[in-house]
C-alpha cells in the first residue's frame, strides 16, 4: 500500500469512514511504536506516545495537505511527541551517559571488532540473542538525542535534509550529531561485546 492509497484512506477518514483510519492505524502502529520505543526506551511510554500520535494525527487530519506522505507526517508527530515527553520527564537521573563514556579513553579493541560481529556459525541464534541483549544495553546508554537521530537514520532511512526538518536543526548539525551518535553507539556496543 503506497502513498496514494494512504491519501485515499485519509480522504475516506475525512468523510467519516472510521474503518479507513483503523486501517491506517493497523498499518503503521508497529513502525511508529518502533520509533517511539527507540527514542524513549520504555514500552509503556512508547505505547502511550504511539497512541497519542495516532489520536493527534486524526485530530488534525483535515490539515493534512498530502504534500508529504501520511507516514512522514505521522513519524514527524511521533518524534515530536517523544521529544516533548523527554523534555517533560527530564530528571536528574536523565544523565547523558554518552558524556561519561566520552570522557573515558577509547576502549581497547581486545575483543572482536564490530566488523567481525556479523553473526555466523552454529551458535548463530544464541549469539544473536545475546548480542541483542547487549545491544539494548548499549542503546539505553545513548542520549535521547542520539537515539532519536539513529532511529530516524538507521530504522527509517531518512535523508539528512528530512531529519533536519523533523528535528528542526541544521543539516550540518544532523551530520555531526549522527557521527557522534554512531561513535558513542560503537563505543558502547564494543564495551559490552568485550565483557
Amino acid at each position: 500500500m503506497g502513498r496514494e492509497e494512504d491519501a485515499k484512506l485519509v480522504e475516506s477518514c475525512l468523510k467519516g469512514d472510521e474503518k479507513a483510519y483503523r486501517t491506517l492505524v493497523e498499518k503503521y502502529q508497529r513502525r511508529i511504536y518502533t520509533i517511539a520505543f527507540g527514542i524513549l526506551r520504555n514500552q509503556e511510554d512508547a505505547m502511550d506516545v504511539t497512541q497519542d500520535a495516532f489520536v493527534k494525527v486524526h485530530r488534525n487530519l483535515a490539515r493534512f495537505q498530502g504534500t508529504s506522505s501520511f507516514y512522514t507526517w505521522l513519524y514527524r508527530i511521533v518524534v515530536n511527541l517523544c521529544i516533548d515527553r523527554k523534555r517533560r520527564a527530564k530528571k536528574a537521573i536523565n544523565v547523558d551517559y554518552d558524556d561519561s563514556i566520552s570522557h573515558q579513553e577509547q576502549p581497547h579493541q581486545t575483543g572482536p571488532t564490530l566488523a567481525s560481529v556479523s553473526i555466523a556459525g552454529p551458535a548463530k541464534e544464541l549469539a544473536r540473542k545475546e548480542l541483542r541483549e547487549k545491544m539494548q544495553l548499549a542503546l539505553d546508554k545513548l542520549s535521547p538525542d542520539h537515539r532519536q537521530i539513529l532511529v530516524l537514520r538507521e530504522v527509517e532511512g531518512l535523508p539528512y535534509e528530512e531529519i533536519a526538518e523533523i528535528l528542526e536543526i541544521a543539516k550540518g548539525t544532523v551530520m555531526s550529531r549522527l557521527f557522534h551518535a554512531r561513535t558513542k553507539f560503537k563505543q558502547a556496543i564494543s564495551r559490552y561485546l568485550n565483557h
Binding site: T34, R132, V151, E154, F185
Partner: peptide
C-alpha cells in the same frame, strides 16, 4: 555493521 546492529537493536524489541 553498526547500522545493522542499530536497526536490529531498535526493531527487535518491538
Amino acid at each position: 555493521v553498526l547500522s545493522e546492529l542499530a536497526r536490529d537493536g531498535f526493531t527487535s524489541p518491538v
